[in-house]
Design a protein around this nucleic acid. Structure first.
Length: 255
DNA sequence: ATGGCCATGCACCATGGA
């Protein structure tokens, strides 16, 4: 099973190159974040023609998550079941005995604001739900944009972001707690020494100089990660004309 | 020496992203 996750920063603004990429990589499951459309604006026809069924939790203008699949999936949760939310940031499906979620955690800037409080509350609810899932299922995997820079190794210059919500101690502590619950950082399991950046600011110098951040992740339960074959950052989507500021993370499992 | 983007929406600026 090949699973990809991508913060696409508007699915409609990048549909053609995204479809070409799908045809090239052929993942079984694709998790999308920031589709930036409500359900009715989602390009179901084109995605279906490419061979994928789409489950969509949309929102007008902002946010929005989706799960595309070549294999049958059924939706378990739209939004976290334990968190009242007006924003579309979580979509959980089941494919066979695997539970897979697309996650778009809040940015939370500026620190100290209501947005920051919302970020921490979302992360608390997420961890609580993650813990419950582990008790119910063996194979669980989360993928998406977690909007947390876990350590100095995960950003080109940490000093520039010391007051940023992505580096905030409360955010780091919560994402680290997810690891202690038993969720493995899939990319780092195989690539401890590579930076694994998945995001580069728009602007002419960031991508060419690799001034990036690692803020997109897969987190997998133990029995899921035992089947891990590979995990790569696919930079091709960051090289297209009019790219998203994020690129895709692709993981393969022997399932 | 500084700053450099981009998508959306009742839309030619404001907001959000990170």
């Amino acid at each position: 099973m090949k699973i990809a996750t991508l913060n696409i920063n508007s699915v409609n603004a990048r549909l053609a190159p995204f479809l070409a990429w799908l045809d090239d990589i052929k993942p079984d499951i694709v998790l999308l974040e920031e589709i930036k459309t409500e359900y009715n604006g989602f390009p179901f026809f084109e995605i279906s023609a490419a061979g994928y069924e789409a489950k969509v939790l949309g929102q007008k203008g902002y946010n929005g998550v989706a799960v595309l699949s070549k294999i049958p999936v059924n939706v378990l949760h739209e939004n976290l079941p334990n968190f009242e939310d007006t924003q579309a940031r979580y979509l959980e499906v089941q494919a066979g005995d695997v539970v897979i979620s697309s996650v778009y955690m809040p940015n939370g800037n500026p620190t100290g604001s209501e947005k920051f409080e919302y970020k921490l509350k979302f992360m608390d609810a997420f961890n609580e739900h993650a813990e419950k899932l582990l008790k119910q299922y063996d194979k669980v995997i989360f993928g998406g944009d977690f909007n947390v820079i876990l350590s100095a190794d995960d950003v080109y210059d940490e000093t520039l972001f010391k007051d940023n919500a992505l580096c905030a101690e409360g955010a780091r502590r919560r994402l680290t707690a997810l690891k202690y619950l038993g969720f493995y950082d899939v990319y780092k399991t195989l690539h401890a020494k590579e930076n694994g950046y998945t995001y580069w600011d728009y602007g002419p110098t960031a991508f060419v100089n690799d001034f990036g951040m690692r803020i997109d992740f897969f987190f997998a339960s133990a029995s899921m990660i035992q089947t891990l074959k590979s995990c790569v950052v696919d930079k091709d989507l960051r090289k297209i004309e009019k790219p998203s500021d994020h690129t895709a993370l692709v993981a393969e499992f022997e399932i």
